[in-house]
Design a protein around this nucleic acid. Sequence first.
DNA 1: TATAGGATAGGCT
DNA 2: GCCTATCCTATAG
Length: 223
Amino acid sequence: MLIPIPSGPSSLLPKSFYTGNDVVNIARSLVGKIISTKIDGIHTSGIIVETEAYRGPDDQACHAKNDIRTPRTEVMYHEGGILYVYICYGVHPMVNIVTGEEGNPHVVLIRAIEPLTGIETMSERRGFYRNAVGLTSGPGKVATALGIHRVHQAKPVWNPSDAIVQLYDSGLSGFNIVEGYRVGMSKYTGPCAFRPWRFFMDKNPFVSRPLQVHYPDAWNAVD
DNA sequence: TATAGGATAGGCT
DNA sequence: GCCTATCCTATAG
């Protein structure tokens, strides 16, 4: 089940990885990278297999749509390379990586990972689960399994001396990336729901759900 | 296998 | 007051 990672040293992604490109390109290139956490001295990690780009202010699916700048969205406006953690439905934390230069509210949502290390710990954090795939096959699951919560808001992910959250190049290659509509859109999102800003590793069982081919026509219009 | 509903809280109109 | 970048369980087929 596990992806074979090429041996040899894996390299920490530098800060420039997050600031020197557009959020959509970064979301695509994060598929196949490694996200790791060291929380309470325990190391967990996984291969990123699914991401989404959120590109405010001109993206109605983004929390910073129309440049809504509030205490919640403030972190998104920071320089890229830090965490944005958001609680969805009052229950589930979601792991996002801020990208771009300061002032651009751009983030990448980590939607699914394939577990690599610390699987026992991830299982404990998640509680009982029906099968191995259910461990990290969704954004809320990913945050819980990795132990990321709102206390980690604005944490840098590129700092060699801060191992709380880090992203690495895996050296993994030979996989295909599928792109499609983002998950969880509604008619209130408007035309932005149809931007192909979701990326996932083809045929990977940890991807949260099948490719969304189209949304109902009703979503094109808001009442 | 597919679908429906509840949990749960904070942000925004 | 309504919506939300979700997850889990129960129930029906």
